[in-house]
């Protein structure tokens, strides 16, 4: 029988800790596929952030350095400046990138650092147990917005891709989702472009992934995936914001 589906070389063969229905595993796989596709595994240096994504370092068969919460773009800056020929990426959640690490991501983008940032937006703090994130949707119940996010007191869900698009230093900014095969195929395309931007020395590339967190959303995997389509995509539109065609 012909094998049509196999594990990317850039992933280690170990069981994952992610909850059923979590999209992290899919996004990990997409990143690993791109690493394989461009043959950069041996020169990849990943920067792990804090949150569910921290275990990135166990899953990827590549060098990984861990960054303090929110600081991955600064750490990646130091790594990339010291080793400009390596492929350097960060992988950050929304608490990490859009709350505590806002300054670091904006300034890394604005300096046009030659790094690739994978931003996983699931509208909630995952690892800490489902508290409100900057991306939490209006009315969304979390452990710290038990009555739903009130825009009057909690502000608005932040749109990081749109924000970074405005910076003259960013080269490629896109938002993707992996909730169905059509979006998944598109997501892969966008991620490929993000890799090429770094590999070709074109500048800073950023891909935001809308991701499901059934556990903290208190939903079944199916419901969570539907929520991405019905609630998140209308507010966080998909597509390329800057630096390429869809």
């Amino acid at each position: 029988m012909k094998q049509t589906f196999k594990r990317p070389k850039a992933l280690v063969d170990i069981p994952s800790h992610f909850c059923p229905g979590c999209h992290h595993g899919i996004i990990h796989r997409l990143v690993a596929e791109c690493i394989d596709l461009y043959g950069v595994r041996e020169k990849t240096i990943g920067v792990a952030s804090v949150g569910c994504s921290v275990f990135l370092y166990d899953y990827f068969n590549a060098d990984v350095v861990e960054a303090p919460h929110g600081r991955a773009p600064a750490v990646a800056t130091g790594v990339k400046r010291a080793r400009p020929d390596n492929f350097v990426f960060t992988y950050q959640g929304d608490g990490d990138l859009a709350a505590i690490g806002t300054a670091e991501i904006i300034h890394a983008a604005n300096r046009g650092e030659q790094i690739t940032v994978i931003f996983v937006n699931n509208t909630v703090f995952g690892m800490t147990g489902g508290q409100m994130a900057p991306t939490t949707m209006s009315g969304q119940e979390t452990t710290t917005t038990p009555f739903g996010r009130d825009l009057k007191t909690n502000g608005f869900p932040i749109k990081m891709s749109e924000l970074l698009t405005e910076l003259p230093g960013s080269t490629f900014v896109a938002r993707a989702a992996v909730n169905n095969s059509k979006n998944l195929m598109k997501a892969k395309k966008l991620l490929k472009r993000a890799f090429e931007v770094q590999i070709n020395g074109e500048g800073f590339s950023f891909v935001e992934f809308l991701s499901a967190c059934p556990t903290n959303w208190k939903m079944t995997p199916k419901q969570a995936t539907e929520r991405v389509q019905e609630e998140m995509i209308p507010y966080f539109p998909l597509g390329v914001f800057k630096g390429g065609q869809e």
Binding site: V65, P68, A74, V75, T77, G78, R81, A82
Partner: peptide, 8 residues
């Protein structure tokens, strides 16, 4: 953190 990255 840039120092952390470069030193790493």
């Amino acid at each position: 953190n840039m120092l952390l990255g470069a030193s790493s």
